[in-house]
C-alpha cells in the first residue's frame, strides 16, 4: 500500500521529539483499496495513541475518522490495531511504542466502513441471539421481593460481566477471521455470564445457539482473546468451561436418556 506523507506543522512542541503515525485510510467514495497515510505527531510523555489521533484530527487532517468516547478504558469504542496488536488506543501509551513508526489500523476481521471505523452489526446480532438478560421460567411478582444472591454466587459470573464490548477479542481471534459465522469470544462469555448467574434459568435456550458447530465447538483455543482483553474477562476460559459442561451433559444424555434436558 502506498504511504503518502503529510507532515505536521501545527502544535509542534519547540525542539520536541516527533513520531510518525501510519494511519489506515479508507474513503469508499475515493478509493477501493485502503492506503496508509503518514503523519508526524509530537511526542508527549503522557499521550496515548488516541491523543495522537485526536491531534491529527484537530491540527493536521480533519477528514480522519475514528470512534472514541470515554478516554478511560470503559466505553470500549476506541479499539484498533496498533502495530498489529488489538488494543484500546486510550490505554496504549505512545511512549511505549517509540521510536516508531506506529501503525494504526481498524480492528481486524471486521468490514471497514471508513478509515478506522468498523462495522459491528454482526457482533450485535450475535449478542442478541444469546439473550443476554436474566430469563426466568416464571417471573416473581414484585411483592415476593428481590432475587437474592450470595457473594459466592456473584463470584461465579462476575468476571464475565466485566466485558465492555470493545471487540478486541474478535479482532485477535483467527477462527473468527476465517469463519465469520463463529459466535465468538465475547458473546459466549456474556452468555456464560447469565448461564452461571444463580437467578437465571435460560441456559437451555442459550445452549441451542452455543452448543453447536458455529458456537463453542468452532473454537480451537488459540487463546489470544484472553490475552488482548482489557478487562480480564478471559473469554477463552468461558468457552472451555462451556465445552466441559456440554460434554458432561452429552454423556449424561447418552447414559441416561430418560434424564431431563
Amino acid at each position: 500500500m502506498a504511504v503518502d506523507s503529510l507532515a505536521g506543522n501545527a502544535a509542534v512542541v519547540a525542539g520536541g521529539e516527533m513520531v510518525t503515525l501510519e494511519v489506515f485510510r479508507y474513503r469508499p467514495e475515493e478509493e477501493t483499496e485502503p492506503v496508509y497515510q503518514a503523519y508526524e505527531v509530537p511526542v508527549h510523555k503522557d499521550w496515548v495513541v488516541l491523543d495522537a489521533l485526536n491531534h491529527i484530527k484537530d491540527h493536521l487532517d480533519g477528514t480522519l475518522s475514528f470512534r472514541w468516547s470515554c478516554r478511560m478504558g470503559v466505553c470500549g469504542s476506541c479499539g484498533m490495531m496498533v502495530n498489529g496488536d488489538a488494543t484500546l488506543t486510550c490505554a496504549t501509551f505512545v511512549e511505549s511504542l517509540l521510536p516508531g513508526p506506529i501503525r494504526v489500523g481498524p480492528l481486524e476481521n471486521f468490514p471497514v466502513v471508513r478509515d478506522l471505523i468498523i462495522e459491528m452489526n454482526d457482533f450485535m446480532e450475535k449478542l442478541e441471539s444469546v439473550k443476554p438478560w436474566i430469563i426466568r421460567d416464571e417471573e416473581k411478582s414484585l411483592e415476593d421481593g428481590a432475587y437474592l444472591q450470595t457473594p459466592a454466587q456473584l463470584a461465579d459470573f462476575k468476571q464475565f460481566s466485566m466485558c465492555i464490548n470493545c471487540l478486541l477479542c474478535y479482532a485477535a481471534c483467527p477462527v473468527y477471521g476465517l469463519e465469520p459465522s463463529f459466535t465468538g469470544p465475547a458473546v459466549i462469555a456474556l452468555a456464560q455470564r447469565y448461564n452461571l448467574d444463580s437467578r437465571d434459568q435460560g441456559a437451555g435456550e442459550r445452549n441451542a445457539i452455543l452448543n453447536t458447530d458455529e458456537g463453542i465447538w468452532q473454537c480451537t483455543l488459540v487463546g489470544e482473546c484472553s490475552v488482548v482483553c482489557p478487562k480480564d474477562v478471559d473469554p477463552a476460559a468461558a468457552i472451555q468451561r462451556y465445552k466441559v459442561s456440554s460434554t458432561l451433559q452429552w454423556y449424561q444424555k447418552l447414559l441416561m436418556p430418560w434424564s431431563g434436558k
Binding site: 469508499p28 498489529g84 481486524e108 471497514v112 466502513v113 483467527p174 477471521g177 476465517l178 489470544e224 490475552v227
Partner: peptide
Amino acid sequence: PRWYRASMPIFWWMRRWI
C-alpha cells in the same frame, strides 16, 4: 457505501509469531 473487507491469506499463521 462500500465496505472494505480484507480476506485472510492462506498462510495467515505465518504473519505473526503468536
